[in-house]
């Protein structure tokens, strides 16, 4: 099941996002050896502070088993900045109907081989279907995805072969990376569904996700200490006793929003 988390519902799923960042640390930091920043066992970069959308794969218990991140190509995104080597000095594509997808990964430790619901293959197909369907629902027609050659092979083998590539293969730390183009069409989605043997709706609602045991347990844990400024804003909103006070507190949070969100390493 795939849960979509973005700026609108991320307050509800802080614990899930932390688990996702831990998965990314295990995959990109440990297993693939990418040059990524890992702190407290979590892999995050500055694009995670820009309110991207995440598609997060959950198993029946609510444990995070896969994830991918999406950003608009009209604003800041990885190909325009950190992955610019791939484009060889060329400016990136910029279109309202083209999204960039990065950090696609599945938990190969937790998942088994084979084709059943708890396999790497199933989780991979489910996440690919969800990314394409979510983009399509948003009116987005194409995705440019930054991947390594291994992932490229996975795409080709699961009915999801890129229709083209932009730029060239470039070295990203120890491994090469490339930018592939995928169309968000029913034909492509159907091919992946057929390959993975997945017919059902792949998305899970916020409510259903919150009811899963592992996510319930996460939300019962005390919150980790937040940035002081963000914490202050929350307190002010909670303490407001009149509509006017509440509006003022919300306005303050909004005004400080960019600072709060962009605080960690945003000078890059």
């Amino acid at each position: 099941m795939i849960l979509v988390i973005d700026a609108i519902n991320k307050e509800k799923f802080g614990g899930v996002l932390d688990e996702m960042f831990r998965l990314r640390a295990r995959v990109f930091g440990d297993r693939l050896g990418w040059q990524v920043n890992v702190a407290n066992g979590m892999e995050r970069d500055l694009f995670d502070d820009l309110d991207p959308a995440y598609a997060v794969g959950l198993d029946d218990q609510g444990e995070v088993v896969s994830c991918v991140r999406a950003l608009q190509t009209t604003g800041p995104h990885m190909l325009a900045d950190v992955f610019s080597d791939i484009l060889d000095g060329e400016p990136p594509l910029r279109s309202a109907t083209l999204w960039e997808s990065t950090r696609f990964c599945v938990d190969t430790k937790r998942l088994g081989r084979g084709r059943d619901r708890n396999s790497v293959s199933y989780a991979t197909c489910e996440l690919m279907i969800a990314s394409l369907e979510a983009a399509k629902q948003a009116g987005v027609t194409d995705i440019v995805t930054v991947i390594d050659p291994v992932m490229d092979r996975v795409l080709k083998r699961s009915g999801n072969a890129p229709y083209d590539y932009v730029g060239k293969q470039a070295d990203m730390g120890k491994v090469p990376a490339l930018a592939a183009l995928l169309d968000c069409t029913d034909e492509r989605i159907e091919r992946i569904r057929e390959f993975g043997g997945i017919e059902e709706d792949v998305f899970i609602s916020d409510e259903a996700a919150l009811a899963l045991p592992a996510i319930k347990a996460l939300s019962e844990q005390p919150n980790e200490p937040q940035d002081d400024l963000a914490k202050y804003c929350k307190e002010q909103i909670a303490m407001a006793s009149t509509d006017e006070e509440r509006a003022a507190a919300l306005a303050l949070q909004d005004a400080l929003g960019t600072i709060i969100r962009s605080r960690p390493n945003c000078d890059a």
Binding site: D6, I8, L71, Q72, V140, L250
Partner: peptide, 16 residues
């Protein structure tokens, strides 16, 4: 100052 279709919606990447 409070309209969520203005401030909150702008932080999404997909149409809200």
């Amino acid at each position: 100052e409070i309209d969520p279709t203005l401030a909150e919606a702008r932080r999404s990447i997909a149409p809200v």
